[in-house]
Amino acid sequence: MTVIQTCALPEQAFLSKYAEGGGYTDCFVIEMAGQISLAAFVEAFYTTWLFKLERALLVLAAKPSTDLQAKELAAGTRSTFAAWIVEERAEHQLLMCDLTTRTRSWFMIAATTRGTRRATLLFFGSAVTATINEATGEETIGPIFHSLMGFHRIYSKALLHATRSRLNRTG
């Protein structure tokens, strides 16, 4: 699996609790040769050239961040990063929540083998929690989030691609 694929959330995924109701969840995966730790995955993700563009925009919202802070978050010695806080962490997963509590970012690794070759599956997913539409009483992510979903899916795959490239370079 050398291409980034859309997949169902694994059963044990921290993000699964947001898959119910009117919210939105997604999950992307790519396989990389060798053993990659969750810390290496998270640090690479938040320090890619592409995510640094998002970090630059967050400076305008008074939510600056540094590569050192990304490394500390990845290592488990920091619980905040830019506009996110750690919601849940385990040896192979990390779930981040934005400060508005509307969105989540999720990372997970899983070891796998292909014949005699060891590999790591890198999972990345997102969630947007629903709110109640006062006119209809239905749970919905709302028109703004809904209109951004196409871009979001492309951006998520691009972030995972940039992460893979960074891991290959630092590797």
Rank of each mutant, 00 (worst) to 15 (best):
P10F: 08
E134Y: 05
R89I: 07
T6V: 14
T6K: 14
A19M: 05
R89L: 08
A162M: 06
L60G: 13
T25P: 06
M32N: 06
A111R: 14
I109D: 00
S65Y: 00
E91G: 08
L58D: 03
S147W: 10
I85N: 12
F41H: 01
I109G: 01
A74M: 00
L159Q: 13
R153M: 12
R78S: 15
A135M: 09
A82H: 05
C27R: 02
T112M: 12
E31P: 04
Y46N: 07
R102S: 13
N133F: 04
A130C: 09
Y155I: 13
T163F: 05
M1P: 06
T136D: 14
A62C: 10
L68N: 08
T140I: 05
F123M: 02
P143L: 15
F123S: 03
Y24V: 08
A111E: 14
Y24S: 00
I4Y: 02
D98Y: 01
T103R: 10
Q93W: 07
E11F: 00
L53P: 01
F107I: 03
M96D: 12
R166I: 06
R153L: 09
E43I: 00
G34P: 02
V128Y: 00
T131G: 07
D26V: 06
L9M: 12
T163Y: 06
A33K: 13
L50K: 13
F123P: 01
R78F: 11
L167W: 01
V128C: 04
F145C: 02
G125Q: 08
P64Q: 11
A61K: 13
R55P: 02
M108N: 04
A90H: 13
L160C: 11
H146M: 02
T170A: 11
L50R: 06
T101W: 00
C7Y: 04
A83M: 11
V128H: 01
G125L: 01
L159W: 10
T80D: 12
V128S: 05
T101F: 03
A39I: 02
M1Q: 11
